[in-house]
Amino acid sequence: MKSFSDWIRQPGLLNAVPVGLFLLVGFAGPLVLVLLYSFMPPKTFTLNQVPTLENYLSVVTQSYYISFGWSLMLAVITVALLLVITYPIAYGMTKLFNRWATLITILVALPLLISENIRLFGWVLLLLKNGVIDGSLQYLLGVSLSGLLYTVPAVVLGLVYVYLPFMLFPLVIGMSMVPDSLKEAASDLGASRLQIFWEVELPLSMPGILIGSLLVFILSLGSLAESKILGGQVIVMIADDIESAFTFAQNWPKGSVLSVLLITLSLVIIFFLFRNIDLDRLVGRR
């Protein structure tokens, strides 16, 4: 057993102090504040009140489950669509495209330099009634597709478009960790392409798949701009409700309750997803 004074003098621990302080003030601090506010009486802006569960009760009895439901469903749909869309791209980038893979990387990463809202407004111009798509179709074919914008599919399109890099790059990394010799060995032992995929490629690229899915899921769950800009009033996602509570309604405690519930939901899902999965063990490093 090390004594406390030995333990505190470890170089690793000392080196971690600056970043630890930074995280404490910048990350843990605000979270604690949100948690504290969620127990304050409605519409108060101070933390010196008597704690109460009133906000939790009011949130549970109101219809917030609808926006939670939309957020959850859209996050799941986005993850599923992105897995299907990016897996072939990632496969091509790691195995087939060679030097063209760099070009694709740049093309996928470049839009990240432009504000998400501006990119989404670009989609608005495309999908708008009498916009680029609708107007072109009217002019060229005489057909009108006026109902593209402000629909649930438009929101899904926005989510898939915005979060594509967050799925693609982890998948590329995951796939590049599968050595070619393992696939050759599987083939040599009689495995067909499909069997190689199930037995070797998929399990070994699982860390990339899980990390990509998790990133996209958490980001979509807390997304706001897509439903507001491309969805109009057709749906309200939970992040939208949180924003309204903090700004329009000036009810910080209620916004805090919704935030705490969203964070808890994310944590529960992450816990269940990763409970039985040890990433190192998955690829045989431990």
């Binding site: 050759e184 060995a185 998955l282 690829v283």
Partner: peptide, 13 residues
Amino acid sequence: TCMVFQNLALFPH
């Protein structure tokens, strides 16, 4: 036919 690879290519998972 079957081969024993130089790096063995055992499945780590």
